[in-house]
Design a protein around this nucleic acid. Structure first.
Lengths: 219, 219
DNA sequence: GTCTATATATCGATAGAC
DNA sequence: GTCTATCGATATATAGAC
């Protein structure tokens, strides 16, 4: 049987909260283990390079057992992707919040760039899996996922629009082209980045320097 | 039976050049049709999203017939990828040659950027297929392909190194990081670019402007 | 909840007729 | 050269024991 989900699976009127919570806790823990394994493997081998048996083995289960936790492979993929967007969004939003309300738009934009890239490179298997999966996944899953990406994309539109409105970035370039080019450069980074070549922080700095000040010699 | 390849399949001592050329021409034409169909479909649906029967159908053949022209799916993929790198390299090299020998390094670099992106966006299914496949393909194929990419990568290393040596771009940034970030931004572009949003030339201009002059207001 | 066993589908690849 | 037919491997998914 499949466990009830929603509202964290906790029955509000239960007389034995401990028992019901413990039962749900075991299921949730396994489910989490499966998701973590899936995110890690999807991030490395991509959508079609990853089978359910790969994931089950990494999570210490047999393939058939996955269907207790997920209705289908698509459902599992969709949840990994949703978590991926959410983790990046939360990372970036937290860093922006830490800047405080008096931060200038350009500083907020630079913070977003560096956090997005750091999250992708060294913080989250889910984030890496999401970017990789989003370019491989069949149209059906892609459109299911579009709404999540849209919300995060709106944050970037705002950051760029406000920087432009404040005159802190150029206004003669298409902001949507700029946004996609920046996100693209970062999305591709996990494909070639090797930690041995240097810390991710340095790469993030290089990227924001190149993006904001450009490659031409400083005047 | 498989047709002889190499030296364009033409027998130098044949008494009936017409006949032998016509025979090889038919095979070569079909082979070309298969490759074109494969490049187009791989570019759109990726490695695992594309089956041999998809390709055969698009080329007007049955699946089994593909094996007359290619020994395996891997061989077909490898040839599509090899052509992809070659087409981009030839596009860029032709544009560089057209600049003439007196062109300054920064101008050569800008030309390479714009040609690379244009080739990816609107010139070549093979180029698009190659970038998409290279991030999906199993390790075995990836290393087979590494040598081709290495050669093209060397062209970019040269362009950047010479621009830096001439003092025409900044020397305080890691050139290899810069190179990969630029190639990555362009590699991702086919994923989101829609011709309705504007000509590819404009996008190429936006990218080179952003890369060289940066997003900060012009001083 | 997880297991084993199996149904079902599909893909890459091969063999042989034409 | 292309076809039809089919083999063998592997993947997702299901059923039922424990």
């Amino acid at each position: 049987m499949r466990p009830r989900r929603g509202v964290a699976g906790v029955s509000e009127t239960s007389q034995q909260p401990d028992a019901s919570q413990r039962a749900s806790a075991k299921s949730d823990l396994t489910r989490q283990r499966v998701l973590d394994a899936a995110a890690q493997i999807f991030a490395r081998r991509g959508f079609s390079g990853t089978t359910l048996s790969d994931i089950a083995k990494a999570a210490g289960l047999k393939t058939g057992s996955l269907y207790y936790h997920f209705a289908s492979r698509e459902d599992l993929v969709a949840e990994v992707m949703a978590r991926g967007v959410r983790q990046v969004a939360e990372s970036v939003e937290a860093a922006l919040a830490a800047l405080g309300p008096e931060a200038r738009p350009i500083e907020r934009l630079r913070t977003a760039v560096e956090q997005h890239l750091l999250c992708l490179l060294e913080r989250s298997d889910y984030a890496r899996a999401n970017t990789k999966l989003s370019s491989e996944v069949p149209p059906h899953l892609r459109s299911l996922h579009a709404a999540n990406e849209e919300i995060y994309g709106a944050l970037w539109k705002d950051l760029l629009a406000q920087a432009a409105a404040a005159g802190e970035i150029r206004s003669d370039l298409s902001l949507s082209a700029v946004r996609m080019l920046m996100l693209g450069a970062m999305a591709w980074a996990p494909e070639w980045y090797r930690p041995e070549a240097g810390p991710a922080r340095d790469l993030a700095r290089t990227f924001s320097e190149m993006t904001f000040a450009g490659l031409l010699p400083l005047r």
